Every structure is written in structure tokens, then in C-alpha cells.
Amino acid sequence: MSYLETAAQFYSEVAQTPEIGLCCVQSTPMQLPGLKIPCKMQDMNYGCGTTVHPTELSHQPTVLYVGVGGGLEALQFAYFSRRPGAVIAVEPVAAMREAARNNLELAAKENPWFDPSFVEIRDGDAFNLPVADESVDIVAQNCLFNIFAPEDLTRALQAAYRVLKLGGRLQMSDPIATRPIPQHLQQDERLRAMCLSGALTYAEYIQRIIDVGFGQIEIRARRPYRLLDSETYQLEQHLLLESLDSVAFKVAIPEDGACVFTGKTAIYAGNEPFFDDAAGHLLQRGIPAAVCDKTAAKLGALKPSEIMITESTWHYSGGGCC
């Protein structure tokens, strides 16, 4: 049995018998006015963070959600796009599709504004998304892509890139590893299905996204997720997994490389009122300006005595230098 078949079997089991806290151990679903989440849907909150960022969801975007789970985030996206077929949820596991449909019917009884037609659940997988090229505004997935082996992760990212409109956004939440996960854990198919052994390091994860063509990435959140302790997992030392929420934009990659925003700022401390470099980055004296990591490195090296570069906050909400 392949690791993907093991994952399908595992999620078929938890679709029929919810395993509370399987992935999400700290966060609770976003509270939105007038949104009530059925208890069973909450119990099936198999995610490590969130992909639903309200500032991204104006103008009722068409959303493709990969791996429907219990339907919680599909319902949250529908809160912002209240029209039939606005959210397309793709799910390969039949039991999970059925569970999500049932949960959405429950949600319709508890939320007068919601109609189940707002979410269309389709049979399909992350590698062969059943929608046309450049047809959706947002592709989202929560705690799914980390299950994939690296080469399959690239296939899934390529599929997401294909279906996004130009300027569209890939919104993801996945575990990442603070150091490479040993082979004996990577090869444990059930641990991989449980989102505990397939995570890449931050640098590897971001580079995979860039390599398929996304020109700008913004980190929305980065926080502790799980600890793989040395005794249980046969490690030389404890290994921390983190949860990373990111938004990747389908825009061209600049000649000098992709822009990755992690919450860094540049602050000019020179004698003149403004600093303006050759690339057009304008800094007002004493006022922090959001910059991508690439620009931060360049400005910091250009005038280290006059430009302070602050550390990454790992919480960035848009705008910036590029």
C-alpha cells in the first residue's frame, strides 16, 4: 500500500469516527458574526492553522478548496462568497465527501444565510484538480500538502498554479519542521497521514512554491505545532514542528528573485528626511517600512550604518515594498 493509499484509508476512518484534535491542538475556528459551526464539523477540524483570511475575501471570490475535511473552512469561505458554486471542494475520499455534505446540511439549519449550494463538493485529488485552467481566484488547502512526498508536493503546487487566474492566490496552512525529519519517520506512512512526519523545513517548503512560478509569498502566521519527543520517535533530540500559514500570489517572478514577506521592516536613520535607492525603495527617516526578505538583505548591506533591518515577525498582512 502506498503512502497515499494509507492516507486515504486513514481519513476514511476519521470521516466516519471523528478523531478530535487530530491536527489542530491550539487554535479554534475563526469567530465571524452570524456564523454558527455545527459541533460535528468542529470535531472534524483536521487543520493545523487557517487559510481563511478575511482581507483576501472581498468581491466574493471563487474558491477551490483541496481536501474538504469536515467542511469547516469551506463553510467559512462560503460566508464571504454567498452564491451557488462559489466554493468548489475537491476530495478523493468518498466517506469524507459524504461527511462534509452531511455537516453542511447541518450548517444550513443553524445558519439562515447559508445554502448548501454555495459549496460544490467534487470527486478529485490535488494532482488532477477537476476545474479549468485559470478559472478560480483562490486555491486553499489546510494540512494536506504536508502529507505528500516532495515530488508529489511539486505536482500539487503545479496543479494549483494551473487553475488559478493571473493574480490569484494559493492560501495554505501546513506543518513545517525546524530541521529535516529523519528517514525512519518519513517512511512511516501512518505518521505521514497524521501530519507528523512529512513536513519539510521552512526553506525547502518556500522554495518548492517559488519553483512552480509563484512570484510573491506572504507569511500570515508561524507558530509551534507539535513536538516529536526523542523517546517516542527514536530521535537524538526533540524535534519541533511548526504551523505555517502562507499566501502565494500567481504573479511573475522578478528578475532578482521572488518576493517573500515575513514581517521584516527597514528603518532609515540617516541625516536626510528620505532615503531612495536605485530600485525605488523610499524610506522616510525613523519610520518602519515593510520590506520583503530580498529587499531587506539588499538595503541592510547597502547602508548598514543608516538602515536598520528588523527581525521577521512571521505575521504579515499585505502591502510592502514590491
Rank of each mutant, 00 (worst) to 15 (best):
E236P: 01
T178I: 10
A177C: 00
D229M: 05
A94R: 14
K40R: 14
H53M: 12
C259H: 09
A269K: 13
R101A: 14
V63Y: 07
D174S: 14
A296R: 00
P18T: 05
V90S: 03
I309A: 03
H184T: 01
V93I: 10
L72H: 12
Q9Y: 09
C195V: 04
K264L: 02
T232L: 07
E120W: 03
Q9P: 00
T262D: 12
K303L: 14
V66R: 04
Q207V: 01
L75K: 06
E242K: 08
V139E: 06
P61G: 07
I307A: 01
I209N: 05
G318C: 10
P175S: 06
H281Q: 09
E110A: 15
S243F: 08
A278G: 09
I209W: 10
A94E: 15
E272L: 12
E311M: 10
I88H: 05
Y11A: 05
A126G: 09
S27M: 11
L240A: 15
G70S: 04
G21K: 06
F148W: 12
A248Q: 02
E236N: 09
G167D: 04
G67Q: 01
S197L: 01
A289V: 09
T262F: 03
P288K: 02
L164G: 01
V119I: 12
L72T: 09
F127L: 08
S305T: 14
L196V: 03
V247A: 10
I121L: 09
Y161A: 02
T232P: 06
Q186I: 05
F118E: 00
S243G: 15
V136Y: 02
C39R: 14
V260R: 01
A221L: 11
L239M: 04
L106F: 08
L153Q: 10
G49Q: 11
D125K: 05
V260Q: 03
E73Q: 14
G168E: 01
